[in-house]
Design a protein around this nucleic acid. Structure first.
Length: 481
RNA sequence: GCCCCCAUCGUCCAGCGGCCAAGGACGCCGCCCUUUCAAGGCGGUAACACGGGUUCGAAUCCCGUUGGGGGUGCCA
């Protein structure tokens, strides 16, 4: 095929929906594969809802995902004159007719007939355009309209099941079916790859396109359609912004990596060849084909995303990992940082070198970057955070804990403070109290880190240093009761 | 109601008539490793919705049933 031109056409709603991200990805992969152009058109028809910063949000989200459009974003509103002109031509040619029926009037006429939709009441009334008069498309009474969907194959819509739909509001503005088509033609879009909520629009747009071909000076390109499967929640319902976590920004805030999200999204309705699901973008691009995309809805499984994200985190080299953690552990003013997730310690207490030392141990223990700060907070807080449950279990209600702590406190006064030596110390202390290391380290861990789980203890102690470790052990001993 | 889409392990996919007593991944369970927790290694659990065809042969093709979902707006 020639170089395809595709687009995504999100409306600025305040956040970037993961479903939009998935659709964007499939569009993007398709064009990367075939050397075409991936475009962004902001669907800003509803002026009341349009906000400039929301547009920026869309652009930022795409950039972050690495799915930047190949041309500057365009706005649907800029095509408004073209919408009106197309509508007028269709009206002049008789493809559209005026209708002043109210919803109530239509329903009243249909009452008891068992029929729904529009009854064609105004079809031959010859109403002129004007205030209070909407324009409807005269749909063929018979025959079928076939949508040659690249993914679904031929989908047939009986024309008699499609009512004479409104194309132009009574206030003169043009509705989605036409405006969207006019925009796509103006942008020379070759493939409209979108979600299944738009499938029912396809036959209408095909009808409009055919009608337009009759009234325009030149025959414009009618894009091919491709319907990607719906993204659903555990209830198998379309992802809802109210009940489901669908904002891409929230995933970014939690510390999901763009590459992991892209990889995961690609797996929803499609899969790379072979047994390996974790694949880089080059592989995605090389193997992606619309024809291979599934038809069935896919559940957006965060658990799987999280696992994949952990793998991507572990794949980072140390410097990259540390850099990736920065917004969560030491955010730079003016740069992006996760919303509502300031580090739990005072900024001045953060120690770059200490973090660097603990980083490799943290890297293999987190699945998201948001988990990093809570895991290392004891290193940068004045006093360790104290988990009451852990303290009670490992110290207060542990008969041998006080003795172990006291022994450790004494022994630590002279021990070398490197991980290996500290390991040996705790083994020794344990032996003196007839405790295995796993038991002996427990109270010390809680005393030093405040919790019963966390990074390896001896490395952590070495980083804290003798004085601080002994201070914390002494404090725990004092509080043991 | 009407139109349309869909149907393989709990989940995401592989399978596109014989290589399938159905494969991978996530999850879950167990074991190993082990200073906690992870990670990692090993093993296990678990599916072709149902009924008819077509065919020498069906998870794969056709029809129906059932079940899910999407759409049915002077929203996009």
């Amino acid at each position: 095929m020639g170089a395809p031109r595709v687009r995504i056409a999100p409306s600025p709603t305040g956040f970037f929906h993961v479903g939009t991200a998935r659709t964007a990805l499939f569009n993007w992969l398709f064009t990367r594969r075939h050397g075409g152009a991936f475009l962004l058109r902001i669907e800003d028809t509803d002026e009341a809802r349009d906000r400039e910063e929301w547009v920026d949000g869309i652009v930022d989200a795409l950039d972050w995902l690495g799915l930047s459009p190949d041309e500057p974003p365009v706005r649907q509103s800029q095509f408004a004159p073209a919408h009106r002109e197309a509508a007028q031509r269709l009206f002049d040619a008789g493809a559209l007719y005026g209708c002043d029926c109210t919803r109530e009037a239509i329903e009243a006429r249909l009452e008891g007939t068992g029929r729904t939709g529009y009854d064609g009441h105004c079809r031959d009334r010859g109403l002129a355009r004007g205030p209070g008069v909407a324009l409807r498309f005269r749909v063929q009474d018979e025959g079928v309209t076939v949508v040659h969907d690249v993914i679904l194959g031929d989908v047939e819509f009986p024309n008699d099941a499609i009512e004479d739909f409104v194309v132009v509001r009574s206030n003169g503005t043009v509705l989605f079916a036409l405006s969207n088509l006019v925009d796509d033609r103006a942008m020379a879009i070759t493939h409209v790859i979108r979600g299944p909520e738009h499938l029912a629009n396809a036959p209408k747009q095909l009808m409009l396109a055919a009608a337009l071909d009759h009234v325009e000076d030149h025959v414009a390109l009618t894009p091919a359609f491709a319907t990607v499967p719906l993204l659903v929640n555990e209830q198998r319902k379309k992802l809802s912004k109210r009940r489901d976590p669908v904002s891409l920004e929230s995933y970014r805030d939690q510390g999901y990596l763009a590459d992991a999200i892209v990889n995961f999204l690609a797996l929803l309705g499609w899969s790379p060849r072979g047994d390996e699901e974790k694949v880089d973008r080059a592989t995605l691009v090389a193997q992606f084909a619309l024809e291979d995309v599934n038809h069935a809805p896919a559940f957006f499984d965060v658990a799987k995303l999280t696992h994949l994200n952990g793998e991507y985190i572990r794949d980072l080299d140390l410097d990259a990992f540390i850099a990736a953690c920065r917004p969560w552990v030491a955010p730079t003013p003016g740069e992006w940082s996760p919303e509502g997730q300031a580090p739990p310690w005072p900024p001045e207490r953060f120690d770059e070198a200490v973090f660097r030392s603990i980083a490799p141990l943290v890297q293999e223990r987190v699945a998201t970057l948001g988990e990093v700060a809570p895991m290392v907070d004891f290193l940068f807080l004045e006093d360790p955070p104290r988990d009451p449950q852990a303290f009670d279990k490992a110290i207060r209600n542990q008969p041998l804990a006080a003795a172990v702590l006291a022994d450790a406190l004494a022994t630590l006064a002279t021990a070398d403070f490197d991980a290996a030596a500290l390991h040996a110390v705790l083994v020794e202390v344990g032996e003196r109290h007839d405790l295995a290391l796993r038991r002996a380290q427990a109270p010390v861990r809680v005393a030093v880190t405040g919790r019963s789980i966390g990074p390896p203890l001896f490395e952590s102690m070495a980083l804290l240093g003798r004085d601080e470790v002994r201070r914390r052990v002494a404090a725990a001993l004092r509080d043991a009761g």
